[in-house]
């Protein structure tokens, strides 16, 4: 469990840094140029690290299914939705809703065993846990007026 938690914290911290950096690019270059750059660099980094750890095996794609080729489009959906949300609602409300929705769908995914995930039975304890986390997000994002500037607005 500790290792899983540690990886989650690494991922969350890097997402936070990435959001700040990306939004600096976004201010100048616009959202599609930023997305293209971010995904391009992510691809190059994954390719390089993959080659270091796995060598030629990186290109061994025997169990590849057709839909895997299209899953990258989900990322394009993420950007489009959040950019539109930001435009219509502003960052504070958008991010509050995005995070709540992320958690809600996580709970749904675990409960259904979505896409072959290990199914985690849905219990009232889980529902209460998620509701408490969501209330935390809302207090954090909507409590106090100092979230309008700075990095906090860029979290996604």
């Amino acid at each position: 469990m500790i290792l899983g938690l540690l990886f989650s914290i690494i991922a969350g911290s890097l997402v936070s840094l990435q959001n700040i950096f990306n939004s600096k690019v976004n201010e100048r270059a616009g959202s599609w140029a930023t997305t293209t750059l971010v995904l391009g660099l992510g691809f190059l980094a994954s390719l390089s690290i993959g080659l270091i750890f796995e060598g030629k095996q990186l290109f061994d794609l025997q169990n590849m299914k057709t839909w895997y080729w299209f899953s990258g489009l989900i990322g394009v959906g993420v950007v489009t939705s959040i950019v539109q949300g930001m435009r219509l609602l502003g960052p504070t409300y958008t991010i509050s809703i995005v995070m709540t929705s992320q958690l809600g769908f996580a709970l749904l995914g675990d409960s259904l065993g979505l896409l072959g995930l290990t199914q985690v039975p849905f219990t009232s304890k889980q529902l209460i846990g998620v509701l408490v986390i969501v209330s935390g997000i809302l207090v954090f994002k909507l409590g106090g007026a100092n979230v309008k500037h700075g990095a906090a607005k860029m979290i996604s």
Partner: peptide, 10 residues
């Protein structure tokens, strides 16, 4: 849109 964004991330 925000709701969809969160769904897509997960």
């Amino acid at each position: 849109f925000a709701f969809l964004g969160g769904a897509f991330i997960t």
